[in-house]
Design a protein around this nucleic acid. Structure first.
Lengths: 209, 209
DNA sequence: GTATTGGGTGTACGGATGTTCACTGAAAGG
DNA sequence: CCTTTCAGTGAACATCCGTACACCCAATAC
């Protein structure tokens, strides 16, 4: 296989990202060594610096990539079938969200494991980046929910509380899904997620401050 | 200050545990080195082995200690005032739980941060131990909830789903509380937790499979 | 008063770590 | 065709790591 110089560079950059993601699963990015990565990629340690300024920069690149997968999932969850009547809107939203979750998470499991892990245990810079991204997603979700029929009864404080609960539960399910291997196990987690979401929405719609 | 040999030993053992807990906050137990701990304790590296067989053993000791704090919190949360009428039972339970949370977590913040962190990023043995303990707590909570008036409407599957949601949300709040420093911030987190709990219970009591 | 126990010491070891620097050689540019 | 660019090389560095081993000496046991 013949490659241009730029292609070759991109190729090893990918290999570095992939190796780092795989190796960081043993514990976390903190326990990752530049030399390990280089050895797995089949390159001398110093070559690493041709692609990243530091291990921190590598970490931030992985954060960006992982949240790419997450944003992709969210875009999926927002895409509702066009023939949705207001009557079963809630059920449709829940089903679409859980479907996106159970389909996308296993496909990019390592990305979601990465987020869950480095959020609490990564290097300081990476931790901050992950938290910031999650904050952004919570806000987006809040504006989404505010457009829902029945949202008038929620104060903006209520809305933040609801989105926080939803995002926390979803992260936890994504974690479980990313750890699950057997399809039947995944199905069970999907069922749990669906019922939990419904429970939460039932509670929120009954809610008055 | 004069001490017996046994007292001295216990004294340095404590110092090792405390140092390890503090040092592991930079990243996780995985990034902890025996020599760092020894230096902070003011002891030569090899002396470590007089107290623990390995770093793993140290980790497991910290798991036990941290879950001691957590069990203490749960015992507090279960202690309801004797004059509780069935009418406001739910509110009393929620208030007691949140009070226990906001009082105990800041007091032993490092223990709760430890649990949240090592659950996903610790050494394999420590991770397994933490997950096992959480599993036990979920089961205990399930048997507690089963005794509640109104619990008849829940299938055992529903019950597991509800406890999973509750424990997940509480871990997340404990994380937030352990990270918070300003008292007003803690009060806000307590408010959020209280409203979330109520929302969830409202949803669960309205629930039918 | 003597013997034993055991927490802590000091040295030494082989191996892994991040980073530096001058280098090579093939692809790209002119 | 000659020159420049630059991804990858390889040796060297100081520093940290876990652990083995022989040793010390004060508190305990007898």
């Amino acid at each position: 296989m013949e490659m241009s110089r730029a292609e070759r560079k991109e190729h090893t950059r990918r290999a570095i990202l992939d190796s780092a993601l795989a190796l960081s699963e043993e514990s976390s990015l903190v326990g990752l060594s530049l030399r390990q990565v280089a050895k797995e990629v089949g390159v001398v340690p110093t070559a690493f610096y041709r692609h990243f300024d530091s291990l921190d920069a590598l970490g931030l690149a992985l954060v960006e990539e992982s949240f790419g997968s997450l944003r992709h999932l969210l875009a999926d969850a927002r895409r509702l079938p066009p023939d949705t009547s207001p009557g079963n809107l809630l059920r449709v939203i829940v089903d679409a969200s859980v479907a996106a979750l159970t389909e996308q998470v296993p496909r990019q499991a390592s990305h979601f494991r990465f987020i869950a892990r480095e959020r609490v245990a990564g290097p300081t810079t990476v931790r901050a980046a992950v938290r910031h991204e999650i904050e952004l997603i919570e806000r987006e979700l809040a504006t989404d929910l505010a457009r829902l029929p029945g949202a008038e009864r929620w104060s903006s404080e209520d809305l933040r509380i609801l989105t926080n609960l939803l995002v926390t539960a979803m992260i936890s399910h994504a974690e479980a899904l990313a750890a699950a291997t057997r399809p039947e196990e995944r199905r069970r987690i999907g069922d749990v997620a669906r019922r939990q979401l419904k429970m939460v929405f039932v509670g929120a719609l009954q809610w008055q401050s």
